[in-house]
């Protein structure tokens, strides 16, 4: 059984505009992917593709006017989207850990690192004494490679560098022994030499503890070297899903191909390339959402594309995937 299976997730922003007309922005239009225990999935795409929104939708962290209008997110056999808020609360921070992009703004500036780690444990495990929780907090800081962990428990968030703050956030996400970790751009904004340390740490801990992880990123380099599987998002849909090696060696969706061709390693300067902006979420066309930018688009693309199963769990949402 999959650890997490997201099926046909639709999230809309529904609000009145300045002329008092009800308008719907269809931000997620059928996101589907699955994650096996102990595997690392890269959720990759450009700005506005819906990567972070997918995570927020699954975790029940959407704020109005955004809301999930359809779909399922089955985690350990239970649909997160159908759980009452108290039950979801009990899972978040415990069975499901979250690491967000900006470590500095995600830590409570008015609490020492140790206090924050203790608080988080006792919220989910009231049976822990303060001393027990503090001992485990120090162990966790050591596990994420923070030197002198006992002393660091007394540190304030503002005393930490970006890399150290990100390590603390990883410690917080893992302290209650989750089986699922969601990391949203965990290294964006960190220097490259520090990025390598954090990614090594994340992958090492996930492997060691058998945690399934979703890494949300716009960086194909992170996907190529730190993920087992990848799901490529465009306009609120997963357009391709498969093992990383197959996806890079035989990208099936024209968007994935364009994305890979635009990486600095493959980029041919001054070569023709697809242009144009993502579709208008207020007025999505029927059929394939990529077809206006797609160099291969044909008449058939005005019909909704199927989720083609290619070989070995590699699938693309494209009429022409097999022909390609």
């Amino acid at each position: 059984m999959s650890l997490l299976e997201v099926r046909d997730l639709h999230t809309h922003f529904i609000a009145y505009d300045l002329d008092n007309r009800l308008r719907t922005a269809r931000a997620l239009n059928g996101v589907s992917f699955s994650l096996e225990p102990g595997r690392i999935l890269g959720l990759v795409g450009e700005t506005g593709a819906g990567k972070s929104l997918t995570a927020l939708s699954i975790l029940g962290l959407l704020k109005p006017p955004a809301r999930v209008v359809a779909g399922q997110a089955v985690f350990e056999g239970r649909d997160l989207l159908a759980l009452p808020p108290e039950e979801l609360n009990a899972l978040r921070g415990a069975r499901i850990g979250l690491v967000v992009q900006s470590p500095k703004t995600s830590l409570d500036p008015l609490a020492r690192i140790g206090q924050q780690l203790v608080r988080l444990q006792r919220a989910h495990r009231p049976e822990f004494s303060a001393a027990q929780a503090e001992a485990r907090a120090a162990e966790m800081l050591a596990a994420v490679g923070i030197p002198d962990p006992k002393r660091r428990l007394r540190a304030w968030p503002h005393e930490l560098s970006g890399g150290m703050a990100q390590r603390v956030l990883i410690a917080m996400a893992l302290v209650n022994e989750p089986s699922l970790l969601i990391a949203d751009e965990p290294t964006t904004g960190l220097d490259v030499t520090v990025q390598a340390q954090i990614l090594d740490l994340l992958r090492g801990l996930a492997r060691q503890r058998g945690i399934g992880a979703v890494i949300i990123t716009h960086d194909l380099g992170v996907v190529a070297h730190y993920c087992d599987e990848a799901a490529v998002m465009f306009a609120g849909q997963v357009v391709e899903h498969g093992p990383v090696s197959a996806l890079f060696a035989r990208p099936a969706h024209p968007y994935t191909r364009a994305l890979i061709a635009a990486t600095p390693e493959r980029l041919q300067l001054r070569a023709p390339r697809p242009s144009g902006s993502p579709p208008n979420l207020y007025a999505l066309p029927e059929g394939c959402l990529y077809r206006d930018r797609c160099p291969m688009a044909q008449d058939v693309c005005t019909r909704p594309p199927p989720d083609l199963a290619l070989r070995d769990g590699h699938a693309a949402r494209c009429h022409l995937a097999e022909a390609a």
């Binding site: 560098s161 970006g162 890399g163 150290m164 220097d191 490259v192 030499t193 520090v194 990025q195 390598a196 340390q197 090594d200 960086d219 194909l220 380099g221 992170v222 996907v223 190529a224 070297h225 990383v244 090696s245 890079f248 060696a249 890979i260 990486t263 600095p264 390693e265 493959r266």
Partner: peptide
């Protein structure tokens, strides 16, 4: 430390300790 967007390119890893 640079991650090429190609899983077939092996990483020559000299991960530095510490930060600037």
């Amino acid at each position: 430390a640079h991650l090429p967007a190609d899983p077939a390119v092996p990483l020559a890893r000299h991960v530095l300790r510490g930060e600037i």
